[in-house]
Design a protein around this nucleic acid. Structure first.
Lengths: 157, 157
DNA sequence: TAGAATTTGCTAATATATTAGCCAGCCAAT
DNA sequence: ATTGGCTGGCTAATATATTAGCAAATTCTA
């Protein structure tokens, strides 16, 4: 047994914290036959009417190859439509169907209500602190992060 | 287009923030032919000599069905061994092979060095704040979170 | 304006995530 | 000893994540 590293696994802590939150939303989302990713997409498009896949990738934190499949399934479910742009035949426009809009109208208030319960248990201060700290991490306003120089591999595969 | 929800998508913010961090570690981990999950497991076992699958599930935030596959592949790669416990034939003990220990000895210092670079760019205060806030979210010391009552589905599948 | 870069969305292959469910081993109460 | 409940790890089926790479459309550049 070697010794522990000097730093606790921070990305893992993020994962646990996220799971702690998501645990309270998952039942709502699943109740309506949606996956987390599908709900992220519905919610994102709902805020702006329409989005292109590459925008959805960035906003919803889903890589392009994954998004292709998610959108296909959502199209089959009758939740979204894909329209190719005339000006640029490469690009697509993703929109919600009336069915999806109805779904968001049902789901949205429940999500908001659950946030209230979270605020009730976590405390408003902690919740605000979370938003604030997350934004700090995500914001690009910082010195660039240096990257460790990778050595030659000595261990065999 | 409906209106936005009252709360920003907090789990999504966690996802983005995590990605922001992980982006700087992924190259290191991949350089040694490991996946994120495999590194989580190596690191966890390395700290305590041996662990059972159910412990790994909780520590590494990996569900049992996923872990089964991850461990199988790691066994094939010669990184871990699976030993069935005599006292309880259901349980397993997962240990690192010398090859894995060597790998951790190479990888660990690079990870630590990268944390230094992160600290350099993010600032020590932010990094400490992150650890503190994550622990607060994960800690079970709080009022139980009430759960929204789910209505009957009105929207067709 | 032809050809080289770039962009956009895609497929393919593999690894992991999620949900449901199974089965052997253990344990407690009969 | 036997039954019923529980636990630990597993399989199966589907969805998503990750990496590599591709083809068509567009843009840039000589």
């Amino acid at each position: 047994m070697s010794h522990k590293l000097a730093y606790r696994n921070l990305p893992l802590l993020f994962l646990r914290a996220r799971e702690e939150l998501l645990q309270h939303f998952r039942p709502i989302i699943n109740h309506f036959g949606l996956t987390e990713q599908q709900w992220r997409i519905l919610r994102a498009i709902n805020e702006v009417d329409q989005l292109e896949p590459r925008e959805l990738c960035e906003i919803c934190q889903i890589l392009s190859p994954s998004l292709t499949g998610v959108l296909s399934r959502m199209e089959e479910m009758g939740l979204i439509t894909r329209t190719r742009m005339q000006e640029d035949q490469r690009r697509l426009l993703i929109r919600l169907t009336p069915k999806a809009e109805k779904l968001v109208a049902e789901l949205g208030p429940l999500i908001v209500e659950q946030y209230h319960y979270l605020e009730e248990a976590f405390g408003q201060e902690l919740l605000e602190e979370l938003y604030r700290v997350m934004d700090k991490v995500i914001a690009a306003e910082r010195a660039p992060v240096r990257q460790v120089k990778l050595p030659e591999r000595t261990t065999a595969d």
